[in-house]
Design a protein around this nucleic acid. Structure first.
Lengths: 215, 215
DNA sequence: ATCAAGTCTGAAACTTGTTCTACATTATCC
DNA sequence: GGATAATGTAGAACAAGTTTCAGACTTGAT
């Protein structure tokens, strides 16, 4: 039973990343969409706590059991919501690529743009980021997808000519770490927006440091 | 009522950091210690989920209501547990300071030593780190204490002659971000120990970059 | 069209964090 | 030493995530 539920959830990753799993019928796709929409909506109101499974079920006109078949836990649901939002953001960002000369500057600019987007919906950001870092092993595949998406966004912003070196990938990993953790400190009120900006700019310096020419 | 509870919890930060708040009697100090011990013990068994408030209460021979007076939530309790463990670690680390020549190497060595300690009790690490990153605004003061402790450990490892510059403090912040987030990825099985090591070493390069001489 | 398998629904039950209440114990202060 | 406020205890009650189940609805294959 859990296996079946997992199959549905797995099938449901994202348009861009959809693996083979049982294709969803239209009504199922619609249900899934309604659920994600309700989730994002409730999250926008009151953050992580405001996303209550019973409410999500009701808002999306789906039985509680069905909700759990699609998303085996609240964290799964919110991580999927994040996948969804990231997809949007990636598309949006691609439209106007960052303008800086240096890769470091472009990455910093991109992340700050993303950060400003999050600031517009801080509660939603709270729900998604908290879920992401709270996720345990059972959510690893989904969290990994989010991570790959984020990596893609950063690599995009770097605008490399050649494929990234191992060193550069390490730098990107560290940037991602900093990004998540800085968001957390901001969301929990322990760091200001300015502070997050500084942290992002600081970590982006690693990009110069790992550029292939070895300064 | 919540106010009183907070007072107790606040009073309870740590020996080294204890503020003014109502001093605890001996029996209260003993209770607090029993609670923290039970918490760490249960956490060591099965991580975050294994720390169940009723069990903590029973293990430490305290009524549930009392437990909540000392620690107003499970997250508060686990963050306090982390404070406690960090204190130990700080003391331990001070005994044998890192041997590297460069500050960056010393910090990396120190963090890897801490990491190895965490590996010995991965479940405990799980409980503490998950609580830390899941903590919301109501736990900010306590989380901040943990953060200050961590900063102190890193600055210690750097072994600076002069007080740190603003730039260096930024680097330390980023290192902390990376440290927490890398731990999370390791704990949730999405990164290997080797990967964490690389991430730590990578981010520590920022220290050279922010050394006062401006290479 | 029909049968079987799989899916969805509605509602109850269960778990664990958190709160509340009524009463007992301890501490403080005169 | 006794009044009184603060603290502690036991246990019920409540809230929200999760599980379970019987029955109704879809779907796909024959």
């Amino acid at each position: 039973m859990t296996a079946e539920a997992k199959a549905v959830a797995a099938a449901a990753t994202t348009p861009a990343t959809t693996p083979a799993s049982p294709p969803l019928t239209e009504r199922q796709e619609a249900r899934r969409r309604r659920i994600l929409h309700a989730s994002a909506q409730l999250a926008s109101r009151g953050g992580f706590d405001a996303v209550q499974m019973r409410e999500v079920a009701e808002s999306s006109s789906v039985a509680l059991g069905t909700l759990y078949r699609y998303f085996p836990s609240k964290v799964h649901l919110l991580v999927a919501t994040m996948q969804d939002q990231l997809q949007h953001m990636h598309t949006t960002l691609r439209k106007r690529p960052p303008a800086g000369d240096e890769p470091a500057a472009r990455v910093a600019e991109t992340l700050m743009r993303a950060f400003r987007a999050l600031q517009r919906e801080p509660h939603l950001a709270d729900a998604m980021v908290r879920a992401l870092t709270f996720a345990d092993r059972s959510v690893s595949p989904e969290v990994d997808t989010v991570s790959r998406l984020t990596t893609a966004i950063i690599l995009d912003a770097m605008g490399l000519d050649a494929p990234p070196t191992a060193e550069q990938l390490s730098a990107v990993r560290v940037i991602e770490h900093t990004w998540h953790s800085a968001l957390i400190t901001w969301l929990s009120g322990r760091a200001s927006i300015a502070q997050v900006k500084i942290d992002i700019e600081t970590v982006c310096r690693l990009i110069d440091l790992t550029a292939p020419e070895k300064a």
